[in-house]
Design a protein around this nucleic acid. Structure first.
Lengths: 104, 104
DNA sequence: TTAGCATATGAATAGATGTTCATATATTCA
DNA sequence: TGAATATATGAACATCTATTCATATGCTAA
């Protein structure tokens, strides 16, 4: 499903703004760690907090933002709420960016 | 040159920070417009300023940041300095993110 | 050299943002 | 019901950041 450069150029202003929102979201170290942690498997808030070394409150705040952008989704299991990636493209995004970093 | 999800998971903390820097860079609407404009062809500061509707000074400030991250490069031609993308992955990054936006 | 254009840069400021803290909501189990 | 655990949320605060303005630098052509 990849697109050519020609199509990339034809992007509306609002689409660019939406893109910026997504990039800004994973442009924060804490949120990027969260998303990165969810690449492996779904995690509850408590587990995420330990993994990324943030307070549950801070994680919850950031998850709310990520959820608003449809980057993560959640499901309840008893008292816990498990979060997972809501977007198949995210892992591809990360891999592409990773190539840049590792080549640079 | 694509990598699988397994390798994406094995990312060091500093690599994640570098990734966050890149995403944060193109997470700003102004800078994203700049990068997007450079997808088509190299542009001088003056042209960029008109294209993205920012002052030459503001554009220059942002180009400095993008250049520090090796996302754009420049070449002088007389009085003008032409900027272009310094990273083949950027267009792929944009296309992947664009798919998310358009599917969502 | 001087004038003029293009770009860069430093300082200042206004606005955005991530975290913390206190509190609220929700679920489970005794 | 009540206690304990998990998550969410609002307000406040400190930090970060993008732009503006003034000024400096660099190049070209008289």
């Amino acid at each position: 499903m990849s697109v050519g450069a020609e199509q990339i150029i034809a992007v509306s202003g609002s689409e660019l703004d939406s893109l910026a929102d997504i990039f800004k979201a994973i442009g924060d170290p804490g949120r990027l760690k969260i998303v990165h942690s969810l690449l492996a498997r779904e995690l509850c808030v408590h587990e995420l907090a330990q993994t990324v070394e943030m307070t549950p409150s801070a994680v919850s705040h950031q998850l709310r933002l990520l959820r608003g952008l449809k980057l993560v989704k959640r499901r309840r299991d008893g008292q816990r709420i498990f979060y997972s990636l809501d977007d198949a493209h995210i892992s591809t995004l990360l891999s592409q960016a990773l190539e840049h970093v590792r080549e640079g």
